Computed example of a mutant assay.
Amino acid sequence: MMSLKNLAMFVRVYELGSMSAAARDQRCSPAVASSRISELEKYLGVRLFNRTTRTLRATEHGKIFYQGARKVTEALAEAEAAVMETSQSPRGSIFVAAPLGIGRRLVAAQIPAFKDLYPEIDVRLRLSDRKLDLTGEGLDMALHMGPLPDSDLKVRMVAECPRVLAASPAYLSRRGTPLDGAALVQDRHDCLVLRFPGATEFQWTLMTQTGPKRYDISGPLESDDGDVLTDWALAGRGIILKPAFELAEHLRAGRLVPVCEDTPPAPVPLAWLFPHRRFTDPKVRLFSDYMTRQCRAAISGPAAQTRP
C-alpha cells in the first residue's frame, strides 16, 4: 500500500524543487526525504525525478503523477482541518518566525500564555531580521514588518505600526537636533541602519507637507540585528528609526529623544504571512488570532506612547 507520508513528500519535493527544502517543510532530514521518494518510485515502478548532486527535475511520469497526488494531499489536509475544527484539544507543532526585536517583545513574551491556553500545541519560534523563505524553510507563519511582498503568500494584516526617529541626548548635544528630513541629510547625521544580505532599503521614508518623501541616509554603523542598533543609539552613536512601541520605555525615561518631528517616519504595515496551504490549519489560525490581538494591544496601548 502506498504510504501517505511518501505521497506528501513527493508533492513538496515537486513544488519546492529541492529535496532539502522539502525535508525542512516536512520536518525531517534530507536523507529521510530521499528515502521516501525512493520508496515511492519503487512502489510505482517508475522514476519520478532525475537527480544529480546539483539538480532535481521531475520526469514525465513525475509530472503526470503530481496532478493526482496533489488532489489527494489537499483532500487529506481539508479533512484533517475539518476534524481539528471540531476538536476541543487542538494539537501539533507550529513553526513561527519573527524579526528579532519585535519577536522578542510581541511574540516570545506571549507564547507562554498561549501555551497555557492550548497545552497540546507546541510553538517553535525562530527570530531573525533576515529575509526568510517561508515555504522553503518549512515555516507555518511569519510576522513581517514593511511593504508587503508581491507573492502567493496569504496575508493577515495586524496594524499600521507607528515609527519614530530618535537619538540620545549625548548625540544631540554633540551634533545638534535635526528638525526634518532635509536637515538629517544636509547635516550628514549618523544614521544607524538595519541592513543584511539581500536588503534593498537604503532610504528612510518620512512624511512631509507634500506627502511621503524618501531621504538618502548614511552612517558609519549598520547591523542586521535591530537590538544592536538600539544599543548603539543609547550609546550616543547616531539616529535610529524604529517602531514607536520598541523605543517607548527609552523615550519616556529620556534615554532617547524624538527627532525630525516635522517630518515623522511613515507608519509601516505589520502583518502575518502564511504559505497558502498553512493558512487554514486550525492550530495556525488559533495562534494567529491570539497573537494578532496581543500585537494590536501592544502597538496601540499605553506602552506604545512615546511621550511621558
Rank of each mutant, 00 (worst) to 15 (best):
M1K: 10
S3G: 02
D187K: 15
P243L: 12
R104A: 06
R237E: 05
A304W: 12
S29N: 08
S89R: 15
V257N: 03
G146F: 12
L16R: 08
V259N: 06
R36F: 11
L16S: 06
E201L: 12
I121G: 01
S173L: 11
S20V: 04
R214L: 05
T55V: 05
D152V: 15
S151N: 07
F65S: 02
M157E: 09
E222M: 07
L172I: 05
L206M: 09
C295I: 14
A77Q: 04
S3K: 13
P90H: 13
L44W: 11
R91V: 04
K5W: 10
M157V: 07
A159D: 11
S151M: 10
P169V: 07
Q186D: 13
L132S: 02
A75G: 12
Q294S: 12
A167W: 00
A79F: 12
P267Q: 10
A142C: 13
C295P: 01
Y290T: 04
M145E: 13
N50I: 05
D216W: 15
I37T: 07
G68S: 11
P197K: 13
T210D: 15
D262R: 15
N50D: 13
L44E: 10
T53V: 09
Q26E: 08
Y171P: 01
W232C: 01
E60P: 03
M291T: 03
R285N: 06
L56T: 00
Y290G: 03
S87Y: 12
L125I: 14
A23R: 04
D190I: 00
R70T: 07
T86H: 14
T86V: 09
R175I: 05
M207Y: 06
R124G: 03
L286H: 05
A81W: 12
R277W: 14
T263W: 10
L286A: 04
M2R: 15
S35N: 09
L48G: 00
R195T: 00
D281E: 13
L286N: 02
D122C: 07
V284C: 11
A8R: 05
A271L: 11
P264W: 07
D225G: 00
